[in-house]
Design a protein around this nucleic acid. Structure first.
Lengths: 343, 343
DNA sequence: TGAATTTTCCAAAGCGCTTTGGAAATAATT
DNA sequence: AATTATTTCCAAAGCGCTTTGGAAAATTCA
């Protein structure tokens, strides 16, 4: 069923039917209702390509994910973020195109194609690095975009929504310091990623403000896997002056850390404290009455929802200033922290 | 830059340019090269909507994810699966549309819209339940589709790619039996899901073939979260006749189980054995020299790649029989299993 | 009642591409 | 040289929609 058939069925012109469905004022309520009913009955909806061609709008937003090599991680946060974003898109009638860039291919080429083909109205940039080239590139290319996170070294204005990773890790480190910990290890994410860079800053800034010298031998940076948490923690427990507390970048890493601690016959929350960032992933509830981990919490799903709303506003209003939003985390106390053991 | 401009630039007709780019034989090699070069230089690519309208092809494949309620899990497998699928799509020039169905809305309505709007050429059905209504629905609607998994109670033919979950869990259970375990608990996924249903069958079939009566009090079914693994295991360790081995549905659940075991002061692989299914998620390497867990392994990312190839074949060849593919798992021995402790 | 205004509707153009049916130019055959 | 085949190209139609400019019908006003 297309517009022509529907309008013939109704004995109306295509114009009138189109206007009735698109809420134009110059069509009577009676006609509009008749049209809407017939459309529903015949399961009519305007052909996406035709509509896009006529309006110049794709009603589609692009997400580009680069898997630079075969073993590169798929960000575990990805699923929940996309779920949040996608809910909002569909409420506003937008579709999401997910483009996976295979190993060896050029992410920028995907954006160029998007532009040339008019596949999308806007783009979401995920996992920005400290000096992410995509921001300048997209600005030049002229595709509206919003960044989930920030790029510290980018000075031009651009739209972003970020968690305050710096203050989160200041607070986490301060908290451990308040508990008497003086030797605090950091199992960070890969520090070319902006969020990890900022967490490191927060960590160092807190230590410095307490007059503690930073010991690079207990600071690590890697993909956030369980085995990373396990390995580094196991090693840390064997050194001469082992840390009494560990700060980890995600629950997955924290689980690895906890495993190493338990295997060493120590108790988390007594012998060793662990504080982690918690993205509130749906398959890692950390919200028992007393949560498993003390954590800086921030729902990545809600971030996605919020970011999508911002982007849709930007599309509707192309001249607006790029919006920015900085979300603060909650610091919630769980079972994984306690006073530093006295020597 | 559109086709008209490009053809004027080249002093050719639009037809010739279009044919040159689309590989038609009736254009000379010299002309073709000239055209291709100019297209690349001017970053020309055919407008997606216009091309779709003209050809009737969307070059797009739909994935519909239902988040039935606010707290429902996002499947942790999702990210890796989508990465696998997406790589293949982009190699073949296909786009992936991801449609998140917000809580309270109707998944079927999304498919109806896909059909009415011709947004997609085909659809991937994820996480099928035992008697999944989508299969019949899509057959009637007339959208080509392939299922990741199967629906046990569906008798009509349809395209699918699945892991042999039944044989996987037969083998896992047999293996534990061989090690002397007689009391084997099962922490399954939600059993309305087909994969969990089949795993249960495999588990029971193995036990029965060894003459072991099934004890429903040590069989569980739930969302596959870490805390599920932890809770159930902690409870199991307290009952009168606790199991000596546990079969879990995913590494995430296994991690929870391991935590409970360690907290009880027991050792995994000695006091309690754990076997899990391992989807080879990129953020849970379980492939050390001796892996952390004994596991039935099957890469969900490779499954995605394979499934995408099948679907693209189906689109190219609409009359073919619905293809099916059953992948066998590897059973790899890790540190989490050992002989049953003698009483 | 006739003119002015508002409401209601329509024909047709255009979005950018593919593709049909043929024409012009070139090469091969008689 | 004349005819036939082949190569190379093009004008124009059509995909299904939105939207412009304007006409017809209904309503209001003088």
């Amino acid at each position: 069923m297309n517009l022509k058939e529907l309008s013939e069925l109704l004995n109306l012109s295509q114009t009138t039917v189109s206007r009735a469905l698109n809420g134009f004022p110059e069509v009577s309520e009676r006609t509009r209702e008749r049209v809407q009913k017939a459309a529903k009955q015949n399961n009519y909806a305007p052909n996406k390509a035709a509509r896009g061609l006529a309006t110049g709008q794709a009603l589609t937003i692009g997400h580009v994910i680069s898997t630079t090599n075969q073993n590169e991680m798929v960000n575990p946060v990805f699923g929940d973020f996309v779920a949040g974003v996608g809910e909002v898109y569909s409420k506003h009638g937008y579709k999401m195109i997910l483009s996976i860039v295979p190993p060896g291919e050029d992410e920028y080429q995907v954006y160029r194609e998007f532009k040339a083909q008019s596949t999308v109205d806007a783009v979401v940039v995920q996992s920005p690095s400290v000096n992410d080239g995509r921001i300048e590139f997209l600005n030049e290319l002229g595709i509206p975009f919003i960044v989930h996170g920030r790029a510290s070294e980018c000075t031009v204005p651009y739209a972003w929504l970020d968690v305050n990773n710096r203050s989160a890790f200041v607070r986490a480190t301060d908290f451990l310091h308040d508990l008497g910990h003086r030797r605090i290890a950091l199992l960070n994410g890969r520090e070319h990623m902006d969020f990890a860079h900022r967490r490191r800053q927060g960590y160092e800034s807190s230590l410095q403000s307490h007059g503690i010298k930073i010991d690079q031998s207990i600071v690590f940076s890697s993909d956030m896997t369980e085995s990373y948490g396990y390995q580094r923690t196991a090693e840390l427990l064997k050194i001469d002056n082992p840390p009494t507390a560990i700060l980890t970048a995600s629950i997955i890493v924290a689980l690895g850390a906890r495993r190493a601690v338990q295997e060493a016959g120590l108790t988390v929350g007594q012998d060793i404290s662990i504080v982690t960032h918690d993205d509130r992933l749906s398959y890692f509830h950390n919200n028992a009455d007393v949560p498993m981990f003390t954590a800086t919490k921030s729902s990545v799903r809600e971030a996605g929802q919020h970011l999508a709303e911002m982007l849709i506003q930007m599309i509707a209003n192309p001249l607006m200033e790029p919006p920015n939003e900085l979300l603060e985390v909650e610091l919630t106390i769980g079972q994984s922290t306690g006073p530093a053991p006295s020597k």
